[in-house]
């Protein structure tokens, strides 16, 4: 900074600058810096204001909803029937759908994502890595609606060959495909965490006579544990919030069950359904999507907090 300033001053100083000239330049510089700072602050506040705005809309609309439906029945009722003549608003069926599809997705994504990460970080030759990584990124870039139809047209028919009386919409097929869709998030973050483990740690292990496998599982994996757990938690957040795959392939019927073979509706899929225009604007049913959205947001917020604690708890100083 000082270098460039003195360089600029040297260029300008053919007629030597008076003190007041310099001060004037300084004032101008201060003004420019202030403007730039404000522009940067403005850019940063876009995300903050958006978040605050969303929370405000969710909370205020939910407030209207909860003045008609008690929080107690919202949390404990096992029926979600907003379209019935006598509507009931119990979040549990939607919650069960969300958690079941997420669980199936994680059973797919965590083992596969971790294996891919270990392979890419510790075993793959650079040439192989250069080929595999773009494909993984491509997997992450496929629109989820495409995944949804992949589940409906390919995966579920295949599952029906194995399980003959499986319904055409079910949480198993949707969950499996959702798992495939979040593999890239889990694997790339977990791989980053493992590659960030310093080479000296690997050398230390190899110097003890360890094999690649022993080094990967006994030294690198524990050393990267905090980052790997963060990757899992991000994966869970994505699964909980995932919408199109479950809307297309899991069915649209709220169903209070944790059996993945059955069709069910998730919180996000319910919001999509309302957005399609089944409920009149301003009705209690319409307001219910804000309560549902708030529940979803609180879940992901809780997951983010858990992730934060986990990162601190398992961080290794090396």
């Amino acid at each position: 900074m000082r270098e460039t300033n003195s360089g600029a001053a040297a260029l300008m100083s053919q007629p030597p600058l008076t003190v007041s000239d310099r001060l004037a330049r300084k004032a101008l510089r201060n003004f420019k810096e202030r403007v730039i700072e404000l522009l940067l602050l403005g850019a940063a506040s876009v995300s903050v204001l958006t978040t605050v705005g969303i929370i405000w809309v969710l909370v205020s609309e939910s407030f209207n909803f909860f003045s008609n439906v008690s929080i107690w029945s919202f949390l404990t009722d096992t029926m979600w029937t907003p379209l019935f003549a006598e509507p009931r608003y119990g979040i549990l069926p939607l919650l069960a759908g969300t958690l079941t599809t997420s669980m199936v997705a994680l059973v797919v994504a965590i083992p596969l994502g971790t294996t891919i990460a270990i392979y890419l970080s510790e075993f793959a030759r650079p040439a192989v890595r250069e080929v595999v990584k773009p494909f993984l990124e491509l997997l992450g870039g496929i629109p989820t609606i495409v995944y949804g139809y992949f589940a409906l047209m390919v995966v579920i028919p295949l599952l029906q060959l194995l399980i003959p009386d499986l319904s055409g919409f079910n949480m198993l097929g949707a969950g499996i495909v959702m798992g495939i869709a979040i593999i890239p998030y889990v694997s790339s973050l977990a791989e980053d965490a493992m590659r960030a483990v310093p080479m000296s740690m690997r050398e230390g292990s190899y110097a003890m006579g360890a094999t690649k496998l022993q080094t990967a599982f006994r030294v690198i994996f524990p050393a990267a544990l905090s980052g790997i757990l963060s990757a899992y938690i991000l994966g869970i957040s994505r699964a909980v919030g995932e919408t199109m795959i479950v809307a297309v392939a899991a069915g649209m019927q709220p169903n209070f069950t944790v059996n993945p073979l059955e069709p069910a509706q998730t919180i996000s899929a319910y919001i999509v359904q309302v957005a399609l225009g089944d409920l009149p604007h301003g009705s209690i049913g319409y307001q219910s999507i804000f309560a549902a959205g708030l529940s979803l947001m609180l879940m992901t917020l809780a997951l983010n907090l858990v992730g934060h604690v986990v990162r601190r708890r398992f961080r290794e100083a090396y």
């Binding site: 000296s200 740690m201 230390g204 003890m208 360890a210 006994r218 524990p222």
Partner: peptide, 30 residues
């Protein structure tokens, strides 16, 4: 096999992210 017979201590201490006990036990365990 070579590394099982010849140990090495590095420039910068590089203990594994394990307990003191497990660090020393590492060679035996593998």
């Amino acid at each position: 096999e070579v590394r099982m017979r010849i140990g090495m201590v590095f420039q910068k201490p590089n203990p594994f992210p394990k307990s003191i006990y497990e660090n020393v036990a590492y060679g035996l365990r593998i």
